[in-house]
Simulated assay, not measured.
Amino acid sequence: MALDDRDALNSLGFPKAPADTRVVVAMSGGVDSSVVAAELAREGYDVVGVTLQLYDHGAALSKKGACCAGIDIHDARRVAEDMGFPHYVLDYENIFRDAVIDEFADSYLAGATPVPCIRCNERVKFKDLLETAKDLDADCMATGHYIQRKVGKDGPELHMAADTTRDQSYFLFSTTPEQLSFLRFPLGHLKSKDETRVLAARHGLGVADKPDSQDICFVPNGDYASVIEKLRPGAAEPGDIVHADGRVVGSHKGVIHYTIGQRRGLGIGGLEEPLYVVKLDVDARKVVVGPKEMLSTRIIPVREINWLGDAPMASQDEWSVSVKVRSTRPPTEALIRPLSETEAEVELFTPEEGVSPGQACVFYQTGASRVLGGGWIWRSY
Score class of each variant (00 low, 15 high):
253 K>M: 04
329 R>K: 15
252 H>C: 03
135 D>R: 12
130 L>V: 01
280 L>W: 12
324 K>N: 06
132 T>H: 08
76 A>G: 09
173 F>N: 01
10 N>Q: 04
107 S>N: 11
213 S>Y: 08
380 S>V: 13
138 A>W: 07
143 T>C: 02
238 P>S: 01
343 E>F: 08
226 S>I: 08
369 S>Y: 14
185 F>Q: 01
356 S>D: 15
62 S>G: 04
107 S>G: 04
242 V>W: 05
263 R>T: 10
325 V>W: 14
99 A>G: 00
212 D>T: 10
15 P>W: 05
197 R>D: 06
122 E>N: 09
20 D>S: 14
31 V>L: 03
355 V>Y: 13
82 D>S: 06
85 F>C: 01
161 A>S: 12
121 N>H: 10
268 I>W: 07
78 R>S: 05
190 L>C: 07
268 I>A: 06
74 H>A: 07
296 S>N: 14
280 L>D: 11
338 P>N: 08
264 R>N: 12
231 L>D: 05
295 L>C: 07
344 A>D: 13
24 V>D: 00
370 R>Q: 15
37 A>V: 04
98 D>C: 03
202 R>V: 01
289 V>P: 13
50 V>F: 03
160 M>E: 12
142 A>S: 02
32 D>C: 03
340 S>Q: 11
307 W>K: 05
352 E>M: 15
251 S>L: 01
214 Q>M: 09
118 I>G: 08
260 I>L: 11
4 D>G: 05
360 A>T: 13
197 R>E: 06
225 A>K: 04
311 A>R: 15
355 V>H: 12
122 E>S: 06
154 D>Q: 06
27 M>C: 06
178 E>M: 05
39 E>L: 05
262 Q>G: 08
18 P>G: 00
128 D>S: 08
181 S>C: 02
153 K>Y: 04
313 M>S: 12
18 P>D: 04
243 H>C: 04
85 F>Y: 11
381 Y>R: 15
22 R>Q: 01
369 S>G: 13
295 L>N: 09
107 S>Q: 11
53 Q>N: 13
274 P>G: 05
312 P>G: 09
132 T>G: 01
67 C>H: 07
100 V>M: 04
7 D>W: 14
144 G>C: 00
147 I>H: 04
285 R>H: 15
216 I>A: 01
273 E>H: 14
289 V>K: 09
103 E>Q: 10
304 E>P: 09
340 S>V: 13
130 L>F: 00
25 V>E: 02
164 T>P: 09
113 T>Y: 00
58 G>R: 06
167 D>G: 03
56 D>V: 00
46 D>Y: 00
303 R>W: 11
22 R>D: 02
298 R>P: 08
208 A>W: 13
